[in-house]
Amino acid sequence: MISKEGPHRKESGKRGRKPGRKSGDKIDMKAKLERSRQSARECRARKKLRYQYLEELVADREKAVFALRKELEKFQVWAKEIDEGRIPDDIQMILEDVGALKKEK
Protein backbone atom coordinates (compact mmCIF):
# COMPACT_ATOMS: atom_id res chain seq x y z
CA MET A 1 0.00 0.00 0.00
CA ILE A 2 0.99 3.60 -0.43
CA SER A 3 1.98 5.43 2.74
CA LYS A 4 0.58 8.92 3.28
CA GLU A 5 2.96 9.97 6.04
CA GLY A 6 4.57 12.78 4.01
CA PRO A 7 7.61 13.25 1.79
CA HIS A 8 10.42 10.76 2.22
CA ARG A 9 13.89 12.06 3.08
CA LYS A 10 17.13 10.69 1.85
CA GLU A 11 19.58 9.97 4.61
CA SER A 12 22.63 10.33 2.37
CA GLY A 13 21.91 13.83 1.01
CA LYS A 14 24.67 16.41 0.62
CA ARG A 15 22.91 19.22 2.43
CA GLY A 16 23.00 19.96 6.10
CA ARG A 17 25.57 19.55 8.79
CA LYS A 18 27.88 16.58 8.67
CA PRO A 19 28.34 14.59 11.85
CA GLY A 20 31.78 14.32 13.42
CA ARG A 21 33.12 17.77 12.49
CA LYS A 22 35.22 19.35 15.21
CA SER A 23 38.14 21.73 15.73
CA GLY A 24 40.18 20.26 12.87
CA ASP A 25 37.54 21.63 10.55
CA LYS A 26 38.26 25.17 11.79
CA ILE A 27 41.73 24.91 10.32
CA ASP A 28 40.25 23.64 7.07
CA MET A 29 37.79 26.52 7.14
CA LYS A 30 40.62 29.04 7.63
CA ALA A 31 42.52 27.51 4.72
CA LYS A 32 39.38 27.60 2.61
CA LEU A 33 38.80 31.28 3.44
CA GLU A 34 42.42 32.11 2.60
CA ARG A 35 42.13 30.30 -0.75
CA SER A 36 38.94 32.23 -1.41
CA ARG A 37 40.65 35.54 -0.61
CA GLN A 38 43.60 34.65 -2.83
CA SER A 39 41.25 33.69 -5.65
CA ALA A 40 39.42 37.02 -5.27
CA ARG A 41 42.72 38.93 -5.39
CA GLU A 42 43.74 37.11 -8.57
CA CYS A 43 40.33 37.73 -10.11
CA ARG A 44 40.57 41.46 -9.40
CA ALA A 45 44.08 41.55 -10.89
CA ARG A 46 42.88 39.78 -14.07
CA LYS A 47 39.93 42.16 -14.30
CA LYS A 48 42.24 45.18 -13.94
CA LEU A 49 44.53 43.89 -16.71
CA ARG A 50 41.54 43.19 -18.95
CA TYR A 51 40.21 46.72 -18.47
CA GLN A 52 43.66 48.23 -19.17
CA TYR A 53 43.91 46.21 -22.36
CA LEU A 54 40.45 47.29 -23.48
CA GLU A 55 41.16 50.95 -22.69
CA GLU A 56 44.35 50.82 -24.76
CA LEU A 57 42.46 49.13 -27.58
CA VAL A 58 39.78 51.83 -27.53
CA ALA A 59 42.41 54.61 -27.49
CA ASP A 60 44.19 53.06 -30.50
CA ARG A 61 40.92 52.75 -32.40
CA GLU A 62 40.00 56.36 -31.61
CA LYS A 63 43.37 57.51 -32.99
CA ALA A 64 42.73 55.50 -36.15
CA VAL A 65 39.27 57.04 -36.51
CA PHE A 66 40.67 60.59 -36.15
CA ALA A 67 43.38 59.87 -38.74
CA LEU A 68 40.80 58.49 -41.17
CA ARG A 69 38.51 61.50 -40.65
CA LYS A 70 41.41 63.84 -41.34
CA GLU A 71 42.23 61.93 -44.51
CA LEU A 72 38.57 61.99 -45.56
CA GLU A 73 38.41 65.76 -45.08
CA LYS A 74 41.55 66.15 -47.21
CA PHE A 75 39.99 64.08 -50.00
CA GLN A 76 36.76 66.07 -49.77
CA VAL A 77 38.72 69.31 -50.20
CA TRP A 78 40.54 67.82 -53.17
CA ALA A 79 37.27 66.69 -54.75
CA LYS A 80 35.77 70.15 -54.28
CA GLU A 81 38.79 71.79 -55.93
CA ILE A 82 38.70 69.33 -58.84
CA ASP A 83 34.96 70.02 -59.28
CA GLU A 84 35.82 73.73 -59.51
CA GLY A 85 38.36 72.97 -62.24
CA ARG A 86 41.54 73.32 -60.21
CA ILE A 87 44.13 70.64 -59.59
CA PRO A 88 45.28 70.70 -55.97
CA ASP A 89 49.02 71.08 -55.43
CA ASP A 90 49.23 67.76 -53.57
CA ILE A 91 47.61 65.89 -56.46
CA GLN A 92 49.85 67.71 -58.94
CA MET A 93 52.92 66.51 -57.03
CA ILE A 94 51.58 62.96 -56.92
CA LEU A 95 50.93 63.03 -60.66
CA GLU A 96 54.42 64.33 -61.32
CA ASP A 97 55.95 61.59 -59.14
CA VAL A 98 53.94 58.93 -60.96
CA GLY A 99 54.94 60.46 -64.30
CA ALA A 100 58.60 60.42 -63.24
CA LEU A 101 58.28 56.74 -62.33
CA LYS A 102 56.77 55.94 -65.73
CA LYS A 103 59.59 57.79 -67.54
CA GLU A 104 62.20 55.76 -65.63
CA LYS A 105 60.64 52.47 -66.69
Score class of each variant (00 low, 15 high):
E62D: 12
E73A: 09
V77N: 13
R86G: 02
I94R: 11
R9W: 10
S3K: 14
G20T: 00
L101C: 10
P7Y: 04
H8V: 13
K18Q: 04
M29P: 01
V65T: 03
R35L: 04
I91T: 06
I94T: 08
G13H: 14
I82A: 07
L33Y: 10
S36W: 05
P88F: 03
I27P: 01
R35S: 08
R44Y: 05
C43H: 13
E5Y: 06
L68K: 13
R44Q: 09
L57S: 13
K32A: 09
L95P: 00
K26Y: 07
E56N: 14
K14I: 03
R50P: 00
D60R: 13
K48V: 06
E96L: 13
M29I: 04
R61S: 03
E34Q: 15
G6C: 01
E5N: 12
V65K: 04
L49P: 00
E96A: 09
K10M: 04
L33C: 04
V65M: 07
G16R: 03
Q52S: 13
A67N: 06
R15K: 11
V65S: 02
R50T: 04
Y53M: 07
L54Y: 10
A100W: 04
G20V: 01
W78N: 01
K74F: 02
K48G: 01
E73R: 11
Q92R: 15
R86S: 09
K10S: 14
R17Y: 06
S12D: 15
E55F: 11
D28G: 12
E34R: 13
G85Y: 01
K63P: 00
